[in-house]
Design a protein around this nucleic acid. Structure first.
Lengths: 201, 201
DNA sequence: TTCGATTGGATAGTACTGCTATCCATAATG
DNA sequence: CATTATGGATAGCAGTACTATCCAATCGAA
């Protein structure tokens, strides 16, 4: 497959594909001469993953890290999850106090060292953002959040396919990243429905 | 309070405050002369909300719409929620097929017209993104997602304060937007814990 | 009252991101 | 042999969130 066919099949313009090649999101094709390279179905598939990640709001550099995790799977699925999360979790600038976050996630069975520092920092930064806006999450609702994310996470992790490592890699990396917009969108719809139920349409 | 005090108290540099004034995120102070204006605690509070929204990844124009919803609350809390969601829901470029999304959210008690088209479109676009990446959400997990977001939404809507309209406005607008990073961060931590439980630390 | 500092207002510049356009020598193709 | 496509390089562009500079007016301390 030549680059123009790859562009036609994927719907991504040739200059953009060249850009992804430059940015090392897409591996180079097999060179057959100085002005020719052949691309295969793997390139097409990879291109679709790239587009999905970028449209989901993942930046180029994060996408590169996610793809690196896909290409170079660590030993255990657990480390893989960490790599995928590290690739995509926004790492905040300043220091944050994680003690509140630690206290919170103890309800999930958390113990020190059980998850990477940056993920915990993400919780801490989210709490900080709410706090600085003067918004307090009520004590009634936080347990609901914790219970809900625990149900989600357990079902997701229980569903990790074990027969093939490649399948597990795909599942964990894409699942943790690409499902985020789905969950947020579903929450919005659910809020509107619950609101209609309570306040009337 | 002068602009320099506002900057000192909020931690936001003066040129940035000027920028927010230009962008109409922050209302002007009370002018006492051609080169003097007084800012009050409302400005300080507003500034904190602006920073929280922007740090949560909300763009300037979305922030402006969220603040407009805060300032100009519609009749019912239900419409308010719609306004907040419309302000902050990314509206995709192309057309999407929402029939799959409709079918999905019927499990939440959804009926035609029960939520605004763009929120449903958000679900459809998220599904499309997953699909194009070749990632299928398993039939076992989707019900867990639906159940989890429904629990979350019901608890949130049940907690809407009714005694004061202003409190309800704050709750709905900030709650729907600023809690998003918290939920995503909690999910990541919960996934890591569930993963550690299943695969060993 | 004088003089440096501050303010509002305007305008322009910056850094970054995700492309997009153009050019070129080379090489495949009809 | 003329047309077209390719890889590679470089430059440009549009959008976003600031940041910097300048100015005349005015405040406020000496």
């Amino acid at each position: 497959m030549r680059i123009s066919e790859l562009a036609a099949d994927s719907g991504v313009p040739v200059p953009t594909i060249k850009y992804y090649l430059r940015e090392a999101l897409l591996p180079e094709g097999v060179r057959s001469s100085a002005t020719q390279a052949a691309y295969g179905d793997l390139h097409l598939e990879r291109l679709r993953v790239i587009r999905a990640l970028i449209e989901a709001g993942v930046s180029i550099s994060e996408t590169r890290r996610v793809l690196a995790a896909l290409d170079d799977p660590p030993e255990s699925p657990h480390e893989l999850l960490g790599a995928a999360h590290a690739a995509v979790t926004p790492q905040g600038e300043g220091e944050v106090d994680v003690t509140e976050a630690e206290r919170l996630v103890e309800a999930l069975g958390w113990k020190p060292g059980m998850c990477d520092a940056n993920s915990l920092g993400g919780v801490a930064r989210a709490l900080q953002g709410l706090d600085r806006a003067g918004f307090a999450v009520s004590a009634d609702i936080m347990p609901v959040y914790l219970d809900a994310v625990q149900r989600i996470a357990r079902a997701e992790i229980a569903g990790v396919p074990t027969e093939s490592r490649e399948a597990a890699v795909r599942y964990v990396v894409l699942g943790s990243v690409l499902v985020e917009p789905l969950l947020l969108a579903l929450r919005r719809v659910a809020e509107q429905i619950a609101s209609a139920e309570r306040f009337g349409a």
